[in-house]
Write a protein that binds this DNA or RNA. Structure first.
Lengths: 143, 143
DNA sequence: TATTGTTATACTCTATAACTATA
DNA sequence: TATAGTTATAGAGTATAACAATA
């Protein structure tokens, strides 16, 4: 690499990138079998947890552009997975929520998703490693 | 989520995804200031470590399609960052290696890259967390 | 016959900017 | 004036398939 970085640090950094890449690749491939991209899955999963959400708020959470979310929401709406409706409180806002078909698709996807994450990641970690990853990477994620 | 997964496991999984995302986003933004995408950076970094590499081998390592690598190599060659030449041993093969400008660009990029990784990740981890992440995620990356 | 690499092509996605409507 | 969302548009990147050359 360069500059001042120890061998241990480099190993940890590479391990994080490689593990993240591998997991992401495997998840993306599995989702594709259900006709979903990662972005679309994250939208649906978010709506499942949050119920009804404003477009703008969702775009902020997912760190994407407004137009990008409009595009994806239109795709998912066209497939009947979610619905859009105007807000009563603020007529500029659009609220989106899962349709039954969206809920059903998630129910269909999630068991395999969990199984994949378990096989690829969780089952390979000791209890101590699991805790260290949760706390350490939690700090990285927050900042 | 769904199925059988403990709260600790879920936390660790989310932490890994979130930390990986955050790091990737920040790195991509920094690289863009140097006119590089992550894919292009990974190609250059690989060539820096490996010297001269066959197109096919590099495509395999980077887990991308042959045509995708041809496209990126053409971009980088057009900017004078790498050079292609036919192999003597196998006339079907094309070998690529860094040009001086490619080496120079990496020299320019790496210090900031290391500093970013340090600030975002390494400096936030205890020695124990660093070891656990290296060993645990190493197992995840390998498989 | 299999492999290497390129090319042609079509497609997905993303972001920027302009625009409308509402606050 | 600022914010919410859409639309138009253009650009980058990716993969598939067909192809030419070599093994």
């Amino acid at each position: 690499m360069a500059a001042s970085i120890t061998a241990d640090e480099l190993t940890a950094y590479f391990a994080l990138r490689a593990a993240g890449d591998r997991l992401q690749r495997a998840v993306a491939e599995q989702l594709r079998e259900h006709g979903l991209t990662e972005v679309q899955f994250s939208i649906l999963a978010r709506l499942r947890d949050a119920g009804e959400v404003r477009m703008s708020d969702l775009a902020r959470v997912l760190v994407t552009s407004k137009s990008g979310l409009t595009y994806q929401a239109a795709q998912l709406e066209g497939r009947g997975l979610l619905a859009r409706r105007g807000s009563d409180a603020d007529e500029r806002s659009v609220l989106i929520r899962l349709e039954p078909a969206g809920v059903a698709l998630l129910e269909q996807v999630l068991p395999g998703h969990v199984a994949l994450v378990r096989a690829l990641m969780l089952d390979r970690l000791s209890a101590g490693e699991l805790r260290a990853i949760a706390s350490g990477l939690g700090k990285v994620a927050d900042g």
